[in-house]
Computed example of a mutant assay.
Amino acid sequence: MITVVGVGPGESHFLTLEAQAIIAAAEVLVAGARHLDTFATSQHNTRRLDADLAGLLAWLRQSMAQRHIVVLASGDPLLYGIGKWLAAHFSPAELRIIPGISAIQYLCAQIPLDMNDIYLTSSHGRTPDFDWLLQHDKVAMVTDAIIGPRAIADAILQRGLTRRLIIGENLSLPTERIYRLRPEAVAQCYDINAVVILNER
């Protein structure tokens, strides 16, 4: 069995109690460097999660019967996380997913902004259809280094639209910053972030 644990937006105190117990009991932690630095102890064997997903898949299939493997995922594993990819390759009998607090949930709670009618998306490894997205009054996007706040702002300005961007940077960490900006005021670069786009009519 492989267990995928959502570790929340960043700080370890946002882990659920179930997530804490599973991480503590794990034999092997599979995660990116940042999460291994945060959660791995001397009792854990580790495997770094990187772009070699084919290699990871082969290793998981070979190792899962003998070892208690826990894969750590940012936020919630099934909200534009590795949970979807793992669920496509392993059966429900082989895979257990522990939800976590997503960066979008955390950002909306900090604002505060209800999520009842928000459209959720991600720019990780994809080019968003901004013509379609910007028809919505409330959009939340998990961003990447290629399409982040500045690219979103440019798309809004190119279409002559009026929107406000709420940018959550380094959410839940000591360096957290939350910005409420018009597109023309958005900077070129931000650290790890999620963005809410609001049509404030």
Rank of each mutant, 00 (worst) to 15 (best):
A51F: 09
C108G: 10
R96S: 14
A40Q: 04
A103L: 10
G81T: 12
A185T: 12
R47S: 11
P9L: 01
L157H: 03
E11H: 11
L171A: 01
T16H: 01
V5K: 01
A145K: 15
I2S: 00
I97L: 00
I118N: 03
Q110F: 13
R150W: 05
T38E: 15
A87T: 03
A103K: 13
R61N: 14
P77G: 12
A65W: 08
D137E: 12
H35F: 04
G6N: 01
L107E: 01
A73M: 02
L72H: 08
I23P: 01
P183D: 03
Q20H: 11
T3K: 00
N170L: 00
A145C: 12
D52T: 13
I101G: 02
Y106H: 10
L120K: 05
H44E: 05
A73V: 08
V70E: 05
I166A: 09
R34E: 09
L29S: 03
A26N: 04
F130C: 12
Q105R: 06
G8I: 00
R48W: 07
I69E: 09
F14C: 04
Y190C: 07
I178F: 04
D114N: 15
Q188I: 12
G148T: 05
A33D: 05
L60E: 06
N199E: 14
A58Y: 07
L57H: 15
D117G: 14
R126A: 10
A24D: 15
A58N: 11
Q62L: 15
L157V: 12
W59A: 08
A19C: 04
K84Q: 10
Y80S: 07
N116W: 11
I147D: 05
E200Q: 15
F90N: 01
T46L: 02
Q62T: 06
A40M: 04
D131Y: 13
S74M: 02
A151P: 04
I167P: 08
A33H: 06
G6I: 00
G148K: 02
A103Q: 13
Q110T: 11
G81N: 05
